[in-house]
């Protein structure tokens, strides 16, 4: 089965931008685009160990008739042929189930709140739930369509960021774009230790093939250093690598990144399992 990206289409100007992002992503990677046009205000996704109900904003149901035509127009303008899926099962009569066996999913920063609230630093709770329980990475788009030309991986040495790095290599392989790695050195650990992590995972070959530059920040705050991330890069990062308590105490890198960068983010959740393809 080919690699598929699920996109929940919203028939509004904001939704158009989001779909452009998805289509661009698919065009660059050669993955196929699966579009779901919701007919109800909510749907369920059954993941391996969690059932996530996604409540949609009213704007998702706007102008249902023109939705498919619009979606086709947008994707065809980028030369992508989308597949439309229908809900095939219902948990309750107005609560459809959407399959969850995709390889990627695209979410705007929020899908349940009014789109006027969408801004930096705000990720809706259903999106968080999806990130936490999905076994696929989530593409969180920036509000306006912006083609990206390179890949930036946030690598901090944790298990999840190793996954993110792997995914970054995969993206680089698929798209042929240069890859940058960004590491903030928090503890007095040296570059060598990060190198050691990378070497122990047999990334050497990938590194030499795809790595463009490895940014290591020792000074300044992480937020300040994020300015160095190219504006036209797809940012790949791991999320929620550590426990809930640690998140509350120290904050999560993902929160910092998503509230600072307006780039497109490709977020690897803790349940993401590497598929070797």
């Amino acid at each position: 089965m080919g690699t598929r990206l699920l996109h929940i289409f919203r028939n509004t100007p904001l939704g158009r931008e989001t779909l452009f992002q998805s289509a661009y992503f698919c065009k660059q990677t050669g993955f196929s685009l699966v579009i779901y046009i919701p007919r109800f205000k909510k749907f369920l996704m059954y993941f391996k160990n969690d059932a996530v109900q996604v409540d949609l904003d009213d704007s998702y149901l706007v102008a249902h008739k023109t939705a498919e035509v619009h979606a086709k127009e947008i994707t065809e303008s980028l030369g992508i042929e989308p597949v439309f899926i229908q809900e095939d099962a219902f948990t309750a009569s107005t609560l459809p189930d959407i399959p969850s066996d995709f390889d990627f999913m695209c979410c705007p920063r929020s899908i349940s709140d009014m789109s006027s609230k969408v801004s930096l630093g705000h990720i809706g709770s259903p999106v968080r739930r999806i990130v936490r329980s999905a076994k696929f990475p989530i593409l969180i788009t920036s509000p306006v369509f912006k083609p990206w030309k390179s890949i930036a991986v946030m690598f901090g040495g944790s298990r999840n960021s190793v996954k993110a790095l792997k995914l970054g290599f995969r993206m680089a392989r698929k798209t042929g774009m240069p890859l940058d790695i960004f590491t903030q050195i928090e503890k007095p650990s040296t570059r060598k230790e990060y190198k050691a992590i990378v070497t122990s995972k047999n990334f050497d070959k990938n590194l030499s093939t795809y790595l463009h530059h490895w940014y290591l920040f020792e000074k300044h705050q992480f937020e300040e250093n994020l300015y160095d991330v190219p504006h036209d890069a797809l940012v790949v990062l791991g999320a929620y690598g550590h426990g809930v308590i640690k998140d509350i105490l120290f904050g999560s890198k993902m929160e910092t990144i998503q509230s600072t960068l307006s780039n497109n983010l490709l977020v690897v959740g803790p349940k993401y399992s590497q598929v070797n393809r």
């Binding site: 205000k41 909510k42 369920l44 059954y46 160990n49 969690d50 059932a51 996530v52 109900q53 409540d55 099962a89 948990t91 309750a92 009569s93 107005t94 609560l95």
Partner: peptide, 26 residues
């Protein structure tokens, strides 16, 4: 809560038979 009205037992049976009994926390 954004749930469907109704008594809910079919939802439980459905989830038991299809999704290994996964139910939402709410």
């Amino acid at each position: 809560i954004r749930e469907k009205p109704g008594h809910g037992v079919p939802e439980v049976i459905y989830s038991v038979s299809r999704y290994g009994g996964l139910l939402r926390f709410r």
